[in-house]
């Protein structure tokens, strides 16, 4: 294969293949819309005692009020209606719900990243912590933490802590793990030669940390932060499920499933996906510019 450069490479290696796959997914989605929604339409026609023609059937499956699977454009229209046409303060605005979820995601992500870094620093510098804590950190992730989510929320509610913090705690619990593991790896990544060099400079432990270990761990930090931010969004969404479904994307999912509002479920789902993608991209961009300014070859 010949090497392409610049825009040609972008078009041939990114745009065309990804575009094709996305297009195929959308086409498949439309096909499934017709297949899954058709029984309802046939049923309706049979009850009314009328025959329904195929083109009519297909167009009807795209515009049901509570379809089994809404068509992509229905979801698109719903998202447009609930983001652009509604006021941001309205309870029906997806931006409002998205903001609720985003704020607890960010708080949990910040707390989790902080905790993860602290644990990693402790583990790298103390042999006891390394040996006694590390196995438990790994075990803590084999526990399905999300299962405790409803309990944490309800219990914290019972003692008067409600709102942002309980959800943020769940996000924190989920997101500290990738950061802790990644940072332990990162803080240990300096080679023996570099450590020895610092030793010949008569550097203290804190100097070794700030001048060698910390800079060396930055690329690891951003890689694990990308995982952590996506996972904290999941935590925030699941944390919203048992709060009586008042606000947030998770609440939209739950009310949608209670009332059979499939279009609402899908629009909440798509906006959660877009939110996750944007968050990961932002972290990626920050990470890239930081590592470039630090002169780390990526």
């Amino acid at each position: 294969m010949t090497e392409r450069e610049g825009i040609a490479a972008f078009i041939h290696d990114r745009f065309i293949p990804i575009g094709t796959v996305v297009l195929a997914i959308i086409l498949l989605w439309y096909a499934f819309t017709v297949v899954l929604n058709a029984p309802f339409e046939r049923d309706q026609a049979a009850r009314a005692g009328t025959e329904i023609s195929t083109p009519e059937l297909i167009s009807n499956t795209m515009s049901q009020k509570r379809p089994v699977l809404p068509a992509p454009h229905q979801v698109g229209v719903e998202i447009w209606k609930t983001t652009v046409e509604k006021k941001i303060t309205s309870k029906r605005s997806l931006i409002y719900h998205g903001w609720v979820t985003l704020s607890s995601t960010m708080l949990g992500f910040a707390l989790g990243t902080g905790l993860g870094i602290l644990l990693a620093v402790g583990i790298v510098h103390s042999r006891v912590l390394d040996k006694s804590l590390m196995p438990w950190i790994i075990t803590s992730q084999t526990i399905p933490i999300l299962a405790i989510a409803p309990m944490v929320i309800v219990v914290l509610n019972a003692i008067g802590i409600s709102g942002l913090l309980p959800k943020a705690i769940i996000s924190m619990y989920l997101s500290f793990f990738p950061v802790a593991v990644g940072m332990v790896k990162g803080l240990r990544s300096p080679e023996v030669m570099h450590l020895d060099l610092m030793h010949t400079y008569n550097a203290s432990r804190s100097q070794v940390f700030w001048k060698l270990r910390w800079p060396a761990s930055v690329p690891f930090l951003f890689t694990s932060m990308k995982v952590a931010v996506a996972i904290s969004l999941v935590g925030a969404i699941v944390g919203e499920l048992p709060t009586g479904a008042s606000a947030g994307l998770g609440a939209r999912l739950l009310t949608g499933s209670y009332y059979g509002q499939t279009i609402q479920i899908w629009s909440a789902l798509i906006s959660a996906a877009v939110l996750a993608a944007i968050l990961v991209m932002i972290i990626d961009l920050i990470g890239r510019s930081v590592t470039r300014r630090m002169g780390v070859v990526s």
């Binding site: 290696d13 990114r14 065309i16 293949p17 990804i18 575009g19 094709t20 796959v21 996305v22 997914i25 089994v68 999300l146 990308k226 995982v227 996506a230 969004l233 999941v234 969404i237 699941v238 994307l249 998770g250 999912l253 739950l254 949608g256 499933s257 059979g260 499939t262 479920i265 899908w266 909440a268 789902l269 959660a272 996906a273 996750a276 993608a277 990961v280």
Partner: peptide, 24 residues
């Protein structure tokens, strides 16, 4: 080239959200 970036993206998404749809 096409499926991997999409797969990477989806792997980071809150997939548990499809639970209500699957129950339906």
């Amino acid at each position: 080239k096409g499926l991997l970036p999409v797969g990477n993206l989806v792997a980071a998404l809150p997939i548990v959200g499809i639970a209500p749809i699957m129950v339906m």
